[in-house]
């Protein structure tokens, strides 16, 4: 397939050149560049969607069919096998999988939401107040963006051990509400989109600083907040190493760690393989929902910012 791909489009290329100029709507752009762009986008769309399609197809197969049938197409019994797989997934081991999903949702939405508000407050303060050491503090945050979260997992484990919080909900929740990148983004956004004049006006009208932040600034910053929330949500959802180090009670696991636990046993307990596949597919659904429902705000925000 990778061999055919660059060859085939060259033919379609030619017969489009003859047809395309008749359309002539909107700004003119060369047909060549447009179809090249389409081609590249098409290739990348396939590149990104095929693994997900494979996951969908694989989660509708029994273990026998998984090993024997074509990898990228359904089997005649896919519908009932798929339903049976999902049923088994949700009941296996006393229904531990829905528990993991719920944990992930709580970690990602609550910690993500709280983290977004903290980032917004922090970024706003750094952008709008002048105080001693402000730049130094901001530079430390910037440094924090560069430190990968995985490098911090082990020091965090030792610290949490000292206060006896390992293997608890808080061990994953507390580190998740910190986001240096969110602070950075909020500061940049606040300094460009919250005019000093508006804050002054609010002060003159007698609004306190906290009220100004929550009623005025936060609305102006909302597009950035959606972005920060999405980033946080995805980062927490995919966070795997921190829970791996911190947790050993299965009922506290997020879904990533739970699936990893199953997957690490596949060579000795092969029946877990279908559960891992179906589980992986089910676990991306909340991410899809979050993105599709929030991207509207996100896009309109970016657009509004661009017009100013």
């Amino acid at each position: 397939m990778s061999v055919d791909a660059p060859l085939r489009p060259a033919e379609t290329f030619d017969d489009k050149t003859t047809r395309a100029p008749k359309r002539g709507r909107g700004p003119r752009e060369s047909v060549m560049s447009r179809s090249a762009a389409m081609l590249i986008m098409g290739v990348f769309t396939l590149y990104f969607l095929i693994p997900i399609f494979w996951l969908l197809v694989s989660s509708t197969k029994t273990l026998d069919n998984f090993n024997t049938s074509a990898a990228l197409w359904f089997t005649p019994s896919s519908l009932q096998d798929g339903i049976a797989n999902v049923g088994r997934l949700f009941t296996y081991d006393g229904g531990i999988f829905p528990r993991w999903m719920l944990n992930s949702i709580v970690y990602a939405t609550v910690a993500g939401g709280l983290g977004t508000i903290l980032s917004a407050m922090c970024g706003y303060a750094l952008a709008k107040y002048r105080f001693w050491g402000r730049e130094a503090l901001f530079n430390i945050f910037l440094g924090g963006v560069l430190v990968p979260a995985t490098a911090l997992a082990l020091p965090l484990f030792l610290i949490f051990s000292k206060v006896q919080l390992t293997d608890t909900f808080w061990a994953v929740f507390l580190p998740s509400i910190v986001s240096p990148f969110g602070v950075y983004l909020c500061r940049i956004y606040a300094s460009s989109s919250v005019p000093d004049e508006i804050i002054e006006a609010a002060r003159i009208d007698g609004s306190g600083e906290v009220r100004t932040f929550f009623t005025v600034a936060i609305r102006l910053m909302s597009p950035a907040l959606v972005t920060v929330f999405l980033f946080q949500f995805v980062a927490i959802w995919n966070n795997f190493f921190l829970p791996l180090v911190m947790l050993r009670t299965q009922s506290l696991f997020p879904v990533t760690l739970g699936l990893y636990t199953w997957n690490s046993n596949v060579s000795q307990y092969p029946e877990l393989r279908t559960l891992v596949l179906v589980g992986a597919f089910v676990s991306i659904i909340p991410l899809l929902i979050a993105f599709l429902s929030l991207q509207r705000f996100w896009r309109s925000g970016l657009g509004a910012g661009g017009l100013k």
Binding site: L244, R248, T249, Y260, T261, N265
Partner: peptide, 8 residues
């Protein structure tokens, strides 16, 4: 506690 296998 049931966790990932040793080397994982």
């Amino acid at each position: 506690s049931i966790v990932a296998n040793g080397n994982s």
